[in-house]
């Protein structure tokens, strides 16, 4: 139906239809997903009892926090013109490492730091292959996804390890039902938004994704900027892994593997383009919330989780299709 309408506005240059067209073209992709999010929330609050309770809202945000942290890193990489599939391997690797270290009596902060360091190393490896040697990011991060996930599996011996309760501070509550990791997540969201919109680093991440040649000519050190995006992505993924382990007080070699797809989906739902140069933190937040709300609502409605996967995939396809149509409308306008 949207399609038919659009063809009409494109085909007939009726002056009355012009405002509609430019309105559609001008609306940011994230805003459309935002409207969709509101619709989904309204739908669930009428059909799923207990959906709009403070308790459930906290549950949604808590669950979304891990994806959000990983999505922030993913966002940087996508804006810079690449993507990071290794997220779903780095998360379990960090979780398992965190469990092993804390079980051995490491202080929580020390174990966290070690995990972030491992993430940074993964990011540097990506920088070397993708940004410096210009190996395709799909191949490279698929390989490191396999390597990091594999190491996590070996290190945990294929079992679920436990995390000492004392090390689970990040999962503990601070104000009411608000856990520490949510607080940190919100802080990171605000910080990354600021970095992307107002710092020179942020501007240049957009630049190398939007037009790497222009960036190079303008004297931008593409390797440093692209490298920071990959390193931050892997560090954020490690942090997400530690948060996940702290929430569950457990770690395994397979936990969080679906977050690769979720983080990418959230970022794309939020208006980022895989061709680089586009995307925003508010958009990614809306994307993460949409996926989180759908998953939560369906759980309340007792719909099995594999249906949730199907629905999330369909939502992603719908969003991408819509943004393509919108792009075309813009060209014509």
């Amino acid at each position: 139906m949207t399609n038919a309408q659009e063809q009409k506005t494109i085909g007939t240059p009726a002056p009355t239809s012009a405002p509609t067209r430019s309105f559609l073209a001008r609306l940011p992709a994230a805003a459309i997903v935002g409207i969709f999010l509101v619709i989904v929330i309204v739908l669930f609050s009428t059909s799923a009892s207990g959906f709009l309770t403070l308790n459930n809202v906290t549950t949604i945000i808590s669950a979304a926090s891990v994806i959000m942290i990983a999505a922030l890193g993913q966002l940087l990489v996508v804006i810079s013109g690449g993507f990071d599939l290794s997220v779903g391997g780095v998360i379990p690797l960090a979780a398992v490492l965190f469990s092993v270290l804390t079980t051995r009596g490491w202080p929580t902060a020390g174990a966290l730091f070690a995990c972030l360091l491992v993430g940074a190393v993964v990011g540097l490896i990506h920088t070397f292959f993708i940004v410096y040697l210009k190996v395709n990011p799909l191949i490279t991060t698929l390989a490191t996804l396999s390597v990091t996930g594999g190491i996590a599996f070996i290190a945990s011996n294929g079992q679920t390890l436990s995390v000492p309760a004392a090390a689970g501070i990040l999962g503990d509550q601070v104000v009411g039902t608000l856990p520490w990791h949510v607080l940190l997540m919100v802080l990171l969201v605000v910080l990354m938004h600021f970095v992307l919109q107002h710092s020179i680093l942020g501007r240049r991440i957009y630049m190398i994704g939007g037009n790497p040649e222009a960036a190079r000519i303008a004297g931008v050190r593409v390797i440093v900027i692209g490298g920071s995006a990959y390193v931050l992505s892997a560090v954020f993924a490690s942090f997400a892994g530690v948060v996940l382990a702290s929430q569950l007080l457990a770690a395994s070699g397979t936990m969080g593997s679906q977050i690769t797809l979720q983080s990418l989906a959230a970022v794309v739902l939020g208006g980022a383009a895989l061709t680089g140069g586009r995307g925003s933190v508010p958009g990614a937040v809306i994307g993460v919330l949409l996926l989180g709300v759908i998953a939560n609502g369906m759980t309340i409605l007792l719909i099995p989780s594999f249906y949730q996967q199907v629905v999330s995939g369909v939502v992603l396809l719908a969003a991408v299709t819509f943004s393509r149509l919108q792009e075309r409308a813009k060209r014509v306008a």
């Binding site: 710092s199 240049r204 222009a214 440093v224």
Partner: peptide
């Protein structure tokens, strides 16, 4: 050599941004 997702004003200062503060330029 324009960055197509940037505005004209943003393109004017590509690689030569005006900024506040000290320390490493990127921050």
């Amino acid at each position: 050599a324009l960055v197509s997702s940037f505005t004209v004003a943003e393109n004017f200062f590509v690689g030569r941004e005006r900024s506040w503060g000290r320390g490493p330029r990127l921050f």
